[in-house]
Design a protein around this nucleic acid. Structure first.
Length: 301
DNA sequence: CACCAGGCGATTT
DNA sequence: AAATCGCATGGT
């Protein structure tokens, strides 16, 4: 009998659906950040100095994390477990959010239809910022294509049983990329410069997740982020939501968010900032979660 | 062909 | 301060 010691077991929290989270990861886009196969998600990532390939699936009342590639020492397992808990937002109690949702006449259907969906994070700040810059003002299909090109060129490739898995490039690799090469990959000149500038800001120690987390409030985090070229209010808020997990962060001006608000007759046109403000007051300190659920609704409207 | 896309920075009013 | 403009290019 073989005893597997490369599996980590995590308890599922209440108000959680692994299937709904997997649905989000496997929307109709070609995201190179992970692979959904059958009922499991495969994820390549770097933690500390080590590269890992994880296979994550549910079993009974638990989530299983199989360390497919990489060390499965006690220390590694601890890091991996923290990563998954953060990625799936497992420590967040959604009860207050669901309470507010159930009271919402227009949106209460989401309580059933999207039950258990979590705010799937982007735990790495550099990756999160790059993803925003790539996605600015272009459609998502094209954005995912650009991201794949960037990752295949500058990222780390992991091969396992004939399949390829990618780890997002280190900022050091992008800091010395040439704008010309990025432009040849169909990035606009502005975006090529933003990406390289951002990578250099990390290289120069001007920006990091811990720097951001050490700041006292959302306002100061937003201010630091937007001091860099290419990081506007939308990008700053997106990152605060997906990476820093500020609960009250809203990516104002987001095209998808506005479309969802119009679909639900919450606003009539995109410039109705007053009604948008009123709407979000119903979700104080849960703004980022209602944004995720509104984005989720775009797939059914 | 027109219009929009998970915006941003620069310029003009 | 607030509105407008140029960017770049794939999707529909």
């Amino acid at each position: 009998m073989v005893i597997k010691n490369n599996i980590i077991t995590v308890k599922k929290p209440p108000l959680f659906s692994f299937a709904e989270c997997l649905w989000f990861l496997d929307r109709n886009y070609d995201d190179c950040a992970h692979t959904v196969k059958q009922d499991a998600v495969w994820k390549a990532l770097q933690l500390g100095e080590e590269n890992y390939l994880l296979k994550i699936y549910e079993k009974d009342k638990t989530i299983k994390i199989e360390v497919v590639v990489g060390p499965a020492s006690a220390k590694s397992k601890k890091l991996i477990e923290s990563f998954v808990v953060e990625w799936f937002d497992l420590n967040n109690n959604l009860e207050p959010f669901y309470k507010a949702l159930r009271k919402d006449k227009q949106l209460s259907y989401m309580y059933k239809d999207f039950y258990g969906l979590r705010l799937m994070g982007i735990t790495d700040l550099f990756e999160s910022l790059c993803w925003c810059i790539i996605g600015q003002q272009i459609n998502l299909s094209f954005a995912y294509k650009l991201k794949r090109r960037l990752v295949e060129r500058f990222g780390i490739k992991l091969e396992y049983e004939g399949s390829l898995f990618y780890i997002f490039p280190d900022f050091k690799a992008l800091a010395q990329a040439s704008a010309e090469e990025l432009k040849a990959m169909q990035f606009s000149s502005a975006k090529a410069a933003y990406l390289i500038n951002t990578a250099q800001a990390f290289s120069d120690g001007l920006l990091s997740k811990s720097i951001l987390q050490s700041l006292p409030d959302e306002e100061s985090r937003h201010k630091l982020l937007t001091s860099f070229r290419g990081i506007g209010t939308w990008t700053a808020n997106y990152v605060l939501m997906k990476t820093i997990r500020d609960p009250n962060s809203i990516p104002h001006g987001d095209a998808g968010l506005l479309k969802a608000l119009i679909n639900h007759d919450i606003i009539e046109d995109k410039k109705d900032t007053q009604k948008i403000k009123l709407f979000f007051e119903r979700y104080k300190n849960m703004e980022s979660y209602i944004v995720i659920y509104l984005w989720r609704s775009l797939a059914i409207h």
